[in-house]
Design a protein around this nucleic acid. Sequence first.
DNA 1: CTGTTAGCGCTTTCAT
DNA 2: ATGAAAGCGCTAACAG
Lengths: 339, 339
Amino acid sequence: MSPRVTLTDVAAHAGLSTTAVSLILNGKTGTGLSEDAHRRVFASALELGYRPNLMARGLRTEKSATLGFVSDHIASTRYAGPMIRGALHAARERSHTMFITETEGERAEQERAIQALLDRGVDALVIATVTGRAVLPERRPAVPVVLLNGTSPDEPYASVLPDEAEGARQAAEHLITLGHRRVHLLGMPPQLYDHPLITPQVKRRIEGLLSAFRAAGVDVVPIPYKREAWDAETGFETASRALRDAAPVGAVVALNDAIAAGAYEAFRSAGLEIPQDVSVVSFDDDGIVSFLRPRLSTVALPYEAMGRRSVELALEGAAPGEYLEAMELRVRESARPVA
Amino acid sequence: MSPRVTLTDVAAHAGLSTTAVSLILNGKTGTGLSEDAHRRVFASALELGYRPNLMARGLRTEKSATLGFVSDHIASTRYAGPMIRGALHAARERSHTMFITETEGERAEQERAIQALLDRGVDALVIATVTGRAVLPERRPAVPVVLLNGTSPDEPYASVLPDEAEGARQAAEHLITLGHRRVHLLGMPPQLYDHPLITPQVKRRIEGLLSAFRAAGVDVVPIPYKREAWDAETGFETASRALRDAAPVGAVVALNDAIAAGAYEAFRSAGLEIPQDVSVVSFDDDGIVSFLRPRLSTVALPYEAMGRRSVELALEGAAPGEYLEAMELRVRESARPVA
DNA sequence: CTGTTAGCGCTTTCAT
DNA sequence: ATGAAAGCGCTAACAG
């Protein structure tokens, strides 16, 4: 409708030059502009409803107050949501606006997305993954890039990751403190390396568990998965196998919540009560298993905090390296002291 | 790193003016520029890796190839995901990039978000809601706006909605075709108007059901909810009440999937088999109840298609009015012919 | 067939 | 204490 109000309009209305108005509106200090000039400018801007044209400003300053969030998946998983929400909040607090794109994990699509964002002058890029495996851009963009929930094997990028080692330590510590001296690990990979499920994060989770238990002299019984999936079915199967081949089972660590859910089933079918007969501790705090009773004690993935952190780092152009976000054990009712 | 390649660079390299290059690169026709000029320009652009600066272009053309998606919730619900995905796809197909913001349904926050997006020159806005109740902008923005999954009571906006009336008709038709002559409606509102749960969409769902059943001479038994929530608990309670106060119960329509899930429980506790003893049809096709057995026959909400449609309409500046997206009955195993 | 010029709205030297 | 002028990269009248 009404043609946009520009700096020139405000200047005319305030009886000053655009220079003066720009200086004042941007809070530039040390420009001996009079008190009165300030007053007039603010009044005019307010009265006319002036809003700076950010594209024009960006053209001049090379800053767009905009950033790009490139994610492999956003709709198809419940993990993306919290990361995006955290990122969105951090961006908003810094008066930035966020472009979001979804790449389905395809390299070509990601390149297109990054290019499209760069063409629009984003100030920074966060490349997020829900799978834990980041796809790196072919050429390093000219703006800061941070990897969210994914690592860069060789090339140095800033990457935000959950502190799996410390989270694992807490899970182990919990069972140790409760007096358990023998613990089954449900969903262990048959071998630790070069396996599709084993992202660097997962490796740290497992190694953290192992080293904490070892340090405490706790007996660890790995129950590897057969199917390559960390789902409820695997949980059911590994728990059943533990009961059959490695009894007695007094405490288990499920490598994620879905496995824990399956294990619950298996233990129940076997007539065992949780936590009276067997203690369960798990990872992720995945909302989807909130229906479990007794409620699951699990180490939460800090997705929202990670999302937030990623844009903070991106906007301040943080140095390459790993930025770990704390994982926290949420103690509920699925584990208790050994009888 | 390398300073950005501009139009001027390409022009110099090709030995032409920026005008010629601009014309050629934008595929402007009818500008008798020589074949040779075309060749040289494309070659130069390619060789130098030229990418147009979209902010500069936008400053000139008033088009940014950008749009804003303003949603009340994105992380906290599983409905937002598909809408966003659909919108993202439509935007990408049209070489547009999408800003996403989350407002928590707060008017002030939404105003801020809209203003921020307008400041960045978005070409259009889609205002999405997962609650079904759109918050309208205080002043109508200067760019096209479409409401996604929400209506505008008074002011005329383009709004994309599920075709609830037709979806309801399909659900009713299904039971009618199976020979049911008496159907219980689980989760009916005590009165149809001025009730918190009753968005215009829901009203159409209910009225669609009622009119289809009435037309077929089917006996409808409404079982209103007590607690104001369409959740599993309400499903359990209404189904139990139907059994107790309005037996026999041979077929029910649950007003959404959560209610259906609760009803499953109630029927089972009462020793009834689905679908042998009672047929169940429902609405939403909410992934979260995919665990139900027998699998639920339900009328799917077309969220992804709606998301897609919303940006198509926004980008073409569609006229105010309602744009309905088809709902589809997904026939599975929860209903069968009357004995 | 091709080039000159102006200008989008803003910031930023540099003068005064 | 304030303003003139240049210029960010692009497009579009208008001339030749």
